[in-house]
Amino acid sequence: MDVPAEVFYVSKSTTLKRACEPFFRGTYNIGLRKNDDALKNEVDAGIDKIISDGTLEKILRKWGLWNDAQLELQKPKAEQKNIDSAYDVTSASFNWREAVWRLTRAAVVTVLIAFGSMFIALVFGMPLAIGQWKGPRLIQWLCTIYVEFFRGTPVLVQLLFLYFGLPTIGLAMPAWLTALIGLGLNYAAYESQVYRAALEAIPRGQWEASYLLGMNPVLAFRRIILPQAFRIALPPMTNDFVSLFKDTSTAYAISVWELATAYRELANASGQFLLLGVAVSLYYLAMSLPMAHLARRLERKLQRREAIEAVESEVD
């Protein structure tokens, strides 16, 4: 929020605190009728007067709004440092280099969130799958509730809940972390089903053959079942990753600076909805197409394997 508003509300509040130092400089403007130079000069003169005689400083100090930034603003215009405005990409002077740089940063955030949440999903999906598959009744039941909850409610709502709902019980996280964890928990539900289907696809004979060779269940799972299940799960996992990658755009709802947010903000500031839209799409495609391609290749490889097995079982 603006510094004056922050000073007014936060300093008096027991439940609010400032999140960080001011990170972006804005100015207040006075709107006048066009071409009314006389009035403009009068207003300018009035402001110059209260600056030079210290009245403005006195007023600002009285309300606790004085800071060093004000001093800098009050210098004659020529001396002012070129203020690097964060949103200086207005339609009049749209700065493409600046926009591309911002989009690239947003793309990096998108990639980091996608990889981070996929990692959570892959790791947390496994105990969920095993719990639902072989766990005691209660665990099976809890895992099913988890899975159905996360698959049955929109991920957007889940993120809003995590970001705005959890702080009310004292669990506040930065927006990017909320997005990363929220998407991770959501996709864990999907990955658990991929794992479970893959594990169930392994014939019981594989377990039995392992046991007969003296393996215990843990060894049989780790050395025999899991590697086979992993091969089955790989193509759907890759597909899920592509979806997750696109679903990072829901982080827009909690204002994480990823590609979708970047698109909205830059386009709002510049009016370049079309060009920026194309640029953002290209960013998404440049990252998701190679993954989709990989998924298809894995799938084809697996199908060939299944074809061989089918032929052999017919020969039997």
Partner: peptide, 16 residues
């Protein structure tokens, strides 16, 4: 099982 080896009808070799 340390003393008995079994060859099933469906062999259940480890395909990986």
């Amino acid at each position: 099982r340390k003393k008995v080896g079994t060859v099933f009808q469906h062999l259940f070799l480890f395909p990986h």
